[in-house]
């Protein structure tokens, strides 16, 4: 059975792009439109990988990333950040939250800044899923 990859992005255009890339590489795509829907899908479907946008209405990627990294059941699920926001801005907001909430959330090991060529995205997925 092919591996399940969840795309969490509010942009319809981005979702259809990533879904196509996944299908072309024999993964099974799942989609969610925002952070809240994303968390529901993760808990229900237990995907093998999450491709996560940062800026979204209703539960941003910043929050969902934090939730997953601080949840025992979810922290093992690999995440690819896939966003228009610069890494620096993302780390800054995580650091601010670290200080506010205490503790330290690890930095994402794969952070892709849109726009991304399909090959680049595939390479990142393969790196995580083998």
């Amino acid at each position: 059975m092919s591996q399940k990859v969840l795309v969490v992005d509010d942009d319809q255009d981005v979702r259809s792009f990533v879904v196509t890339v996944l299908e072309e590489n024999q993964y099974m795509p799942l989609v969610a439109q925002d952070g809240i829907e994303g968390l529901e899908m993760i808990e229900k479907e237990k995907p093998d990988l999450v491709i996560l946008d940062v800026l979204m209405p209703r539960g941003s990627g910043i929050r969902l990333y934090r939730k997953m990294k601080t949840d025992k059941d979810l922290e093992k699920i690999p995440i690819i950040m896939f966003t228009g926001i610069a890494l620096r801005s993302f780390l800054k907001s995580q650091k601010a939250l670290d200080e506010f909430k205490g503790g330290k959330v690890p930095e994402p090991d794969i952070y892709l800044e849109k726009p991304v060529e399909p090959e680049e995205l595939v390479a990142a997925i393969k790196k995580k899923l083998g």
Binding site: D11, D13, V14, S16, F17, V18, T20, V21, G84, K114, P115, E117, P118
Partner: peptide, 14 residues
């Protein structure tokens, strides 16, 4: 404009 570009690139791939 970058967001538009992302859309166009993604769209043309599809």
């Amino acid at each position: 404009v970058k967001n538009i570009l992302i859309g166009l690139q993604g769209g043309s791939y599809v």
